[in-house]
Amino acid sequence: MSDISESLAEIGQGALSGNAAEPSAGSGGADGHTHETKCLNCGTELIGSHCHTCGQAAHVHRTLGAFLHDLLHGVLHFEGKFWRTLPLLLWRPGKLTREYIDGRRASYLSPIALFLFFVFIMFAVFHATESEEKSTGGGNLIEINRSVDGVEAEIDDLKAKRATLSAKGASTAELDKQIAEKQQAVDAVRALQKNGLGEAFSGKNVSSDIPQVDKAVKKFRENPDLALYKLQTYAYKFSWVLIPISVPFLWLLFPFSRRFHLYDHTVFVTYSLSFATLLVIVSMLAGAAGAAWVGGVLFFVPPIHMYRQLREAYALSRFGAWWRTWFLVAFAGTALLLFFMVIMAQTGS
């Protein structure tokens, strides 16, 4: 079976598994509808369109169209939740986080459901685009470096325009905002490069002085193909581990706070990881379409997203969200390194 066929099979299997959580029961008539007066799930007398005891729909549709609807609903909640959650995740992640924490949840997908769904899609896309990724090699890293240089050039151009406007006595507020956002993203990438996280897998002799880290990197270098296979196999199973790994780091940004608790941080982290996973999906699809540069551009998005999510979710000032964003970017790199160690530990000695 081809990689694409395997990916489609995985999507179908996952959808059917989700649909199995709400199976239909009872017998239907010739029109595909049931006409019962009691709930087929728990036997409660029906009042309205849903059972008031267990929540199952009062009338079960037994048609092929209804099955396909349930299939799509099981994957993406087409009836509204997914499409109400996604725009907020993209543009106002802080509002989404705060809404869910404060209990306004009926309109949105839960953070863990969204995260697991995106993880499932990510690995399905990975299988479908695996051959293309192998042929491009380290193209994404090259594109990221090129993108950093390109953004720095854009910053220089904006500074030149600002100087011109300033000399004329015109307002430079909008340019100042653009320069600050672009510089923030560049600084975050440069910080990761400085910490050597990117070099750890490049084949250079990088020593962290941490035995566990060096051992994991050594395994990766000795047999990259096997390591990648293990990453592919275990990362899917252990993706949820990123949540408990990341939460303590976020807690450090609000130590001993009486306003925010571990639950708040867990919701924040899970939605943030969902967004990061979505970026990976888009990057892989773009790479498969011959637009590897998209991955380089998207590399700058997470720091900006973190800033926006921090500010609105925790009602922070611009400065409060700004300095926490830098720490959060560094913590994210550390969390990924710890996750890598967890995965490589599954490969044995």
Rank of each mutant, 00 (worst) to 15 (best):
Q346N: 07
E130P: 02
L328C: 09
V342K: 02
K38G: 07
L231G: 15
I343D: 02
Y307C: 00
G196E: 03
D225C: 04
M306L: 14
Y229Q: 14
S147V: 04
G295C: 04
P87G: 05
W293I: 09
E222P: 01
G296A: 04
P211T: 05
L46S: 05
D214S: 09
H69I: 09
V125E: 02
V151Y: 07
I47F: 11
R190V: 06
K38P: 02
D214Y: 05
S7E: 06
L64Y: 10
L338T: 05
R259W: 09
V213L: 14
F120S: 11
K177M: 06
Q212F: 14
S257F: 06
A30M: 11
H77F: 09
T44A: 14
Y263T: 08
R62N: 12
H73C: 07
F201Y: 15
G29V: 02
A315Y: 09
W323Y: 15
F319S: 15
E6H: 12
K215L: 13
K159L: 13
A335Q: 07
T164R: 15
S207E: 13
V75H: 08
I121E: 05
I243N: 06
A276F: 12
Q184H: 14
T233A: 09
W83S: 13
I179Y: 00
L285I: 11
Q212Y: 11
W322P: 01
L338R: 01
K134Q: 13
T129E: 15
V119L: 02
I210H: 13
F340S: 05
A170W: 09
V269S: 01
H305L: 01
L46P: 02
E174N: 11
P224H: 03
F220W: 09
H127C: 12
Y236C: 05
V148Y: 06
S349I: 10
A173W: 08
V269L: 01
L298H: 03
V148P: 02
L226T: 11
D209I: 03
P255S: 07
A160C: 05
A276L: 11
